[in-house]
């Protein structure tokens, strides 16, 4: 499990992976709630199917980007919660910076105007 070194070695992330990390950046969530959050945050343009979602979760747990936390869901005891590790957070930040760089370049080349952020 690699948790040191340059997180940029893992970039670029797939959009699905980045959105999962984003969803977990604010709080611990269970799998289904991650999918919901991603769908809401992207106004429904990104939909994570269960296969894609849990395959990535499995991979991220193995690689130490996220961890499963001990917390029982009152609604459905089958659900498990995940939290971003510091290493996962560094990777998410690195990806966000990479995207921000891309956006800056887009604005310089007049592909995008500042009003897009209004």
């Amino acid at each position: 499990m690699e948790t040191a070194g340059d997180p940029r070695a893992f970039l670029p992330l797939s959009p699905s992976a980045f959105y999962i990390l984003l969803a977990l950046a604010a709080e611990e969530r269970h799998g289904y709630s991650i999918a919901k959050e991603v769908e809401d945050a992207t106004s429904g343009t990104v939909h994570l199917g269960p296969g894609t979602l849990y395959r990535l979760i499995k991979q991220m747990v193995t690689d130490g980007w996220i961890v499963e936390v001990d917390r029982v869901d009152s609604e459905d005891p089958r659900r498990r919660y995940y939290r971003l590790t510091p290493w996962g957070r560094r990777i998410a930040r690195a990806e966000a910076e990479r995207l921000a760089d891309a956006v800056r370049t887009a604005m310089e080349r007049r592909l995008l105007s500042a009003s897009a952020f209004a």
Binding site: Y32, A35, P50, G51, T52, Y54, K58, D76, R78
Partner: peptide, 24 residues
């Protein structure tokens, strides 16, 4: 490991989700 968790969200799933699971 994940079967039960996936099943927990099934009330909200569509055919394309099943397909996604199968392909993955």
């Amino acid at each position: 490991y994940y079967g039960e968790q996936i099943a927990a969200g099934e009330c909200d799933m569509h055919l394309n989700d099943v397909l996604d699971l199968a392909v993955t």
